[in-house]
Amino acid sequence: MTAAVAVTDLTKTYRALFGGAHEALSGLTLSIPRGAAFGLIGPNGAGKTTFIKVLLGVVQATSGEVTVLGGAPGDVPVRARIGYLPERMHLPAALSARQFLRSVATLKGLAPSDGELSRALERVGLANDGQRIGSFSKGMRQRLGLAAAMLGAPELLILDEPTDGIDPVGRVEVRQLLLEERARGVTLLLNSHLLSETERVCDRVGVLQRGQLRLEGTLDEVRRGATAFRARFEAGADEGALRAAGFVDGVFSGDVAALNEALDRARATGARLVALSPVERDLEQVLSEAMKEAS
């Protein structure tokens, strides 16, 4: 089975009209398996939105290979299988939510019944569909955008800040929706500043910084990091000797080989190991460590 998204050595350089260039993506290689929920994290200006736009064909890659759902990005048949929620969606103020959804459905080549449209709106918590979009709150607009993205049961759902502007209760609802979509087998590509959302919805994450992929793997792999271990020694061990062996407050930073050497040094001072476990980090720590490393 091919990957939902396969990117090899992707580069995107924006060139200014009068000289000057900015490389938004540089040599990015990434594969997102079908059915995965992939969270893209990184600081502002890391190239996350550019990457998403390249996948949609909205931005054209300068070099590299990009395959989305087995086709080229921007191919019309491929786009018919993608649902997308932009970061800042501009919605026609004069239309009602139902009219907007029907318009999107028409352009997607769908002909949903009134009932189907009502269900799509109810799913995102927009029951009062006669109201004009112009009077919608930011959260309501975001929900409508989500409903539009999910129209036609797409195989790949690309969501750029889907919970932006939505209240905490709404966020839970949106998260539930995304989990439902995952359960349906949809491949999810999520870009969110709310790392807790990503942690709760995604099973894979990639850390993007300055256009490069710093870290990528399953959520456990990334969180675990596999470079720090917490050790607990028998009571009475010489704290100074343990520190000299490499255990600072019981935490050792290094790979497994280095860990064993450090343990040997600790044992030589008479310390006895009681428990050893890898140190688990949350995504915030992962991101901040990745940024520290990069800098």
Partner: peptide, 10 residues
């Protein structure tokens, strides 16, 4: 916000 959405459609 509008053109990106339109271009994501088939």
């Amino acid at each position: 916000g509008r053109i990106e959405h339109l271009l994501s459609l088939p």
